[in-house]
């Protein structure tokens, strides 16, 4: 996984509540056996018109937000399905950080597994960041994961909270399967205990 340390980039505002995973990427684009190449289907229904052309009103179709790396989103972003194609599509488009008042649980988890940093900040703060985002290329935001701050274009620093284990995994780009496999003996011991107590459960 690509580590996440600091990011300075253009932020796009999409302050709509309950953007679900079908809006992020509709199911008919999930027929792939790869993780890459999904960026073109990102936000498909909002981004393209019925004839397949780009909707010039949609923020990610406009300059400079076509190159956005940070998304300022609304509450309950990523609700719905567990499809990891949602963060894969965002990543493939170039989004590395999403800031929202609240995320749906599974989507939030999936971001961390893909080097995307999801940041929870209160609605009022997200509103201010969305105003920054509207200014475009002259108002880049900086996200510093080690220091846990978002830096606004005027230099104001906004602190965010993050689980320490997830922070470390992102900063170092760790493979959490390898981390868990380091505990293989404990897993085997657990299986023996359960096998004795509940043979129907673990076989």
């Amino acid at each position: 996984m690509q580590p996440f340390t600091t990011l300075t980039g253009i932020a796009a505002a999409l302050p709509i509540p309950n953007i679900d995973t079908d809006k992020i990427i509709p199911a008919r684009f999930l027929k792939t056996i790869k993780r890459t190449g999904l960026g073109s289907a990102l936000f498909h229904a909002m981004r393209y018109r019925a004839d397949g052309s780009e909707d010039p009103e949609f923020v990610l179709n406009r300059e400079p937000w076509r190159k956005a790396e940070i998304l300022i989103a609304g509450p309950n972003f990523g609700c719905g399905s567990s499809r990891e194609h949602a963060p894969w599509a965002l990543l493939d488009f170039g989004i590395r950080c999403i800031i929202a008042p609240e995320f749906a649980d599974i989507f939030y988890n999936n971001c961390f597994k893909n080097g995307i940093l999801p940041i929870k900040l209160p609605q009022s703060v997200c509103d201010r960041l969305a105003e920054d985002a509207m200014l475009g290329a002259n108002a880049r935001l900086t996200v510093d994961l080690a220091r846990q701050v978002v830096v606004r274009p005027d230099g104001e620093e906004i602190r965010f909270e993050i689980d320490p284990f997830r922070k470390r995994c992102l900063l170092e780009g760790l493979d959490d399967i390898a981390l868990t496999l380091a505990h293989a003996d404990a897993i085997a011991a657990y299986e023996s205990r359960r096998r004795a107590a509940e043979p129907w459960a673990v076989g």
Binding site: G80, S82, I106, N109, N110, K113, D176, I177, T180
Partner: peptide, 30 residues
Amino acid sequence: GDSHTSTHGAFGALAFGIGTSEVEHVLATQ
């Protein structure tokens, strides 16, 4: 790897949906 895994909670099982990276994690480590 499906959010409606919550269905199985009807039997008093702790059941939940996971993403594909976690599918891989469960395959590799249980």
